[in-house]
Simulated assay, not measured.
Amino acid sequence: MSTHGSNRHRTATLCARATGIRYTRCAQWAADGLITRHQPVPDARTTAQRAFEARVVNVLANALRDEQIDGAVLGVTGAVPTPDGLVLELHPEMAHRVVAELLPAFDRGYGGLRGVPGLRLVGRAGEWLLEDVGSPARIRLTHPDPGWTPRLPQDTELLTELWRGKPASLDRTEAEELTLWRSGRGVPRPLLRDIMLSRLLRRPLVVNEAGAAHGWANAYSHGYSDLVIEWCCGRDRDEVERKLRRSGLAAPPPAGVPLDPAKAKPRARGTIALEDAYVVVRALGSCDAGASSITAESITEANRARYR
C-alpha cells in the first residue's frame, strides 16, 4: 500500500472508531479531503454550530453524570459529524431523558435555568431536530426505533418548561444564561472552549470508553469552563487520552480561530487543551463499584418525573 493510501486508511479507521460511522464512508471522506490524519473527525464549520454543540455537551455531562446506561456517557451511541451539522444516535433507554434534560426549564428550587438556553425540539416521528433560537445551528436525533417519539416534559411545582411558552424566541432567563455562556465565566477564549466541547460530542465512541467497566462514568464541569470525565477502573487513562488526541480533539482550530503560542503551557497528564480550554480524563485507580444497577425506570424517578 502506498504512503498516501496508508494515510487514508489510518484516517478512515480513526474516524470510524471515534464516531461509529462505517469505515467505507470515512474512507470516502478521506479520499475527498474532508478528513485528514491530524483531523479525522470533521469540525463544525460555523461558530454558532460549535457553540450550540458545546452547550449540549455541558448540559448532558452535568445532568447525566454517573447515571448512564451501557456506558453511554452523554446518552449517545454514535454520531455523524459534518461541517454543516451533526447527527446523534441516542441510546434507546436514555433517549427520553436526554431530550428532557436538554429542553430549557426554570427551576424554582435553586432559582436558575436547567437545560440548554435557546434549544428547541422540532419534528415528528422519525425526524427530530434540536434547533438553536436565533441561529441556523441544529442537531438531528436518531433512534433505533424509526417511529420513536420523545416523551416531552411537563411543568411541575418546581420546573417551568420555558421552551413550551416561547417556541420561536428566548425567554429572559435564557437570554441571561446565554450572555454568561458567551462571556466565558472566566474562560479567556470561549471560542476555543466551544471547539473543544463540540469536538467531544462528535467522538462518542471514544468518550464512551470511560464507562466500559461498569456502564457509567462520572462527568461534570466547573461552571462553563471545562469538562471532566472520570472513572474508577477499566480503561487506562493514558489509553483514553491517547485515543482522544489521535482523533483530533486538540488539533489546531478551524481557520479564523488562531492560537497564541505564548499561551501554550505544559499540562498534567489526562488534560487535553487548546490554550486555556481543556477537557480532563481521569482514572481514579480504585474501584468499589459493581456492575451498574441503574435502569431507565430508576433514572425516571431521579429526574422528578419530567418526562412521564
Rank of each mutant, 00 (worst) to 15 (best):
S2P: 15
H4M: 11
S6P: 00
N7G: 13
N7M: 13
A12T: 07
T13S: 09
L14M: 09
G20C: 06
Y23W: 15
D32Y: 07
I35G: 08
R37H: 07
Q39N: 10
Q39V: 13
V41A: 08
V41G: 08
P42R: 08
D43K: 08
D43R: 13
A44C: 14
R45M: 12
T46C: 04
T46D: 08
Q49I: 03
Q49C: 00
R50V: 13
A54W: 08
V59C: 07
D66T: 11
Q68W: 07
V73W: 01
G75D: 02
G75M: 04
T77R: 09
T77W: 00
G78R: 09
A79S: 08
A79V: 06
V80Y: 12
T82N: 05
D84C: 05
G85F: 04
V99S: 00
V99E: 00
E101F: 00
L102G: 00
P104Y: 00
R108G: 06
G112C: 02
V116C: 04
P117I: 01
V122M: 09
R124G: 10
R124P: 00
A125I: 03
D132M: 02
D132Y: 01
G134W: 02
A137T: 09
A137N: 10
R138C: 11
L141I: 04
T142I: 12
H143L: 04
H143P: 06
G147N: 14
G147D: 15
G147I: 08
L158D: 10
L159G: 05
E161Y: 10
W163E: 03
W163P: 00
K166D: 12
S169K: 06
L170Q: 01
E174G: 02
E176S: 10
E177Q: 03
R182C: 03
S183F: 03
G184D: 02
G184H: 05
P188G: 07
P190V: 04
L191H: 05
D194V: 13
D194N: 13
L197A: 08
S198D: 14
S198T: 15
R199N: 13
P204Q: 02
V206D: 10
E209Y: 00
G211L: 02
G211N: 02
A213D: 10
G215D: 08
G215R: 06
A217D: 02
A219D: 09
Y220T: 11
S221L: 08
S221H: 09
H222V: 10
L227Y: 04
V228D: 06
I229K: 11
W231V: 05
C233V: 12
R235P: 14
E239H: 10
R242K: 02
R246D: 15
R246Y: 01
L249R: 00
A250D: 14
A251M: 09
A251S: 11
P253M: 04
P254E: 09
V257N: 01
P258V: 09
P258E: 08
P258D: 07
L259Q: 13
K265A: 15
A268Q: 15
A268F: 12
T271Y: 10
T271E: 12
A273R: 03
L274M: 07
L274R: 06
A277W: 05
L284W: 03
G285N: 07
S286V: 14
S286A: 11
S286G: 01
C287K: 01
C287A: 00
D288M: 05
G290N: 07
A291Q: 05
S293V: 15
I294E: 12
A296S: 13
R304M: 11
A305F: 13
R306C: 09
